[in-house]
Simulated assay, not measured.
Amino acid sequence: MRQKKAAEPQRDMRSFVDRLARQGAVKLSRKLTVDGLKIVGDKGTDKIVEALGLIRDFDPVRYRRLLRDVGQILVTVLPASVAQWAEASKACELDERYLIDDARTAEHVASTIVHEATHARLMRCGIGYEEEIRDRVERVCLRREIAFAARLPIGADAAQRAEANLEAMPDFSDKAMRERHLDGLRDALLYLNMPVWLVSLMVSYRRWQHRRRVARRATG
């Protein structure tokens, strides 16, 4: 989903480990460039390159916009979603586990990149990600996914996944987004090979922070 500039919940729940992983990825990971677009990551980059080729070949207008709006594609580990748009760094961030999943084809990845690039385009047009418009913004991005997938020779599955997401939209309130982040944090940290005891400690601390914040708002 993404880390929008205007989205307070994303700023609130961005943990130290999240930032550390992101910074480490940029500094230490392999880097390559496709048509001037930087791709940063050690795993799944071949699938990203193939996905970009699909966008370029089957939707060239959208591809040219993508190159203007997106500064880089970063492979990282995301607790709450398979992808998100990071407005501050102009980056489309993709979850490494999503990319290396054999069930996820280049068509799926291309559709996901189109989704996040639509967030970038909306941001560029002055449309933010405030809680009251978040559901509508996500619907716009999913419809762009569906329209793009319809152009692909074998894009039916990618289109069906986007249509299913559109039919069963999750709750995009601040509270629900924080909870999804916390729910996925443990698996993300374990995937990063952090010791189990430290993961448990950090997740417990983050949940305590969340409960304390909720209590303060309730009494305030």
Rank of each mutant, 00 (worst) to 15 (best):
R2F: 08
K4W: 10
P9E: 07
P9N: 02
S15E: 11
S15I: 05
D18Y: 05
A21I: 10
R22I: 12
G24H: 07
G24N: 15
G24P: 13
A25F: 02
A25P: 06
K27Q: 13
S29M: 00
V34T: 03
G36P: 10
K38F: 01
K43S: 14
K43N: 14
G44I: 15
D46K: 02
D46G: 04
A51N: 10
A51M: 09
R56G: 10
R56N: 12
D57N: 11
Y63C: 04
V70N: 12
V70Q: 12
G71N: 06
Q72M: 14
Q72G: 08
S81T: 14
A86W: 08
E87N: 09
S89T: 12
K90L: 08
A91H: 02
L94Q: 03
D95Q: 05
R97L: 06
L99I: 13
D102V: 00
A106T: 07
E107T: 07
E107H: 03
R121L: 09
L122K: 09
M123S: 13
R124Y: 01
C125E: 15
I127Y: 02
I127G: 01
I133H: 00
V140H: 04
V140C: 07
L142M: 08
A149D: 10
A149P: 14
I154Y: 09
A158D: 09
Q160F: 03
R161T: 15
E163A: 11
E163D: 12
E167C: 01
M169Y: 06
P170A: 01
D171H: 03
F172C: 07
M177K: 01
D187S: 11
L189V: 05
N193P: 04
N193C: 09
M194I: 11
P195Y: 00
V196P: 00
L198C: 03
S200C: 07
M202R: 13
Y205T: 14
R207T: 13
W208N: 11
Q209C: 13
H210N: 13
R212G: 08
R213W: 08
A215W: 03
A215M: 11
R217V: 10
R217D: 13
